[in-house]
Amino acid sequence: MTFKITRRGALLTSLAAFAMGSLPATAQDYPSKPITLVVSYAAGGGTDAIARVFAARLETALGGRVIVENRPGAAANIGTEVVADADPDGYTLLIGNQGPMVVNPHLFDLPKDPAETLEPIALIADAALVVVVGPKLPVKTMAEFLEAAKAGELVYGSAGNASASHLGALLLGQKAGIAVKHVPYKGAGPAVNDLVGGHIDFMVTTIPSAIGLVQDGTLTALAVTGPERFSTLPDVPTAIEAGVPDYTASAWYGLVGPKGLPPEISAKLAAATAETLADPEILSKLQNDGAIPSTLAGADFGAFMAAERARWGEVVKAADIKIE
């Protein structure tokens, strides 16, 4: 019943706006119609799952409908373009993650630079990766791993070209000064499968994709790539502790909108995001998924993205990855 009323309400408001020559949206009555949350990946991926869980709770925080719309394609650049082109009225938002936001500008000649055409609203979550080895490389510690790497080029699997697991392993090779060879897979699943089967040496992968096998002893976790140890893997050191200087890598997700978003709406969205992330249920769901909820918002989030962009730019340049 309430559903009907809100819809009729939305209809009346939009008709009114139409009659008065489409007034700019004001923060007080925002949101007065459904918000479209664009996800740059097909339904069913990791980013999509986080977006849907997040969107469901954000509806309550904002008091309006939030519709998740998948706009996959062109290495997630389509989603960026769609939102960059949208009206900055707060009704079209994007779940941005490190691939399209900070890595792709180094790989592609993008028509819309995310740093210039998108406005940071809030970081949602930051998920560290884990360095794991399988039966093909029976080492127990990072030191043994680095020793083995000196004896011969190690082969690692990734979830795909330019994915977090690809760049994470590249950076590990660069920071530790070892030669590594890349085998791209389509998604983390098949790559972990070949790691367990002993066909490849190691992976730097997301925690959910490997944690069960690590706890069981099938795979050995050498290090986590975040600044701190991970709560469900307390015995696994961070990479820095394990002797790889200055090595961190993570997969993160944030909320961004088109450039020129009214500051009040942006602030309202950041507050709603903070409220959503403070919900213990959402908190535990994110943690179950290996992610740590974040409190960065607005300009701080923008600065974080700029730093990430500079950092991964160097990795991409040093590894000489380019896409023609």
Binding site: R7, A10, L11, S14, K33, P34, T36, I67, V68, E69, N70
Partner: peptide, 12 residues
């Protein structure tokens, strides 16, 4: 599914 129904009438 997030398919537009009647954007000119109900906004999505």
């Amino acid at each position: 599914l997030s398919i537009p129904v009647a954007p000119w009438l109900i906004g999505y």
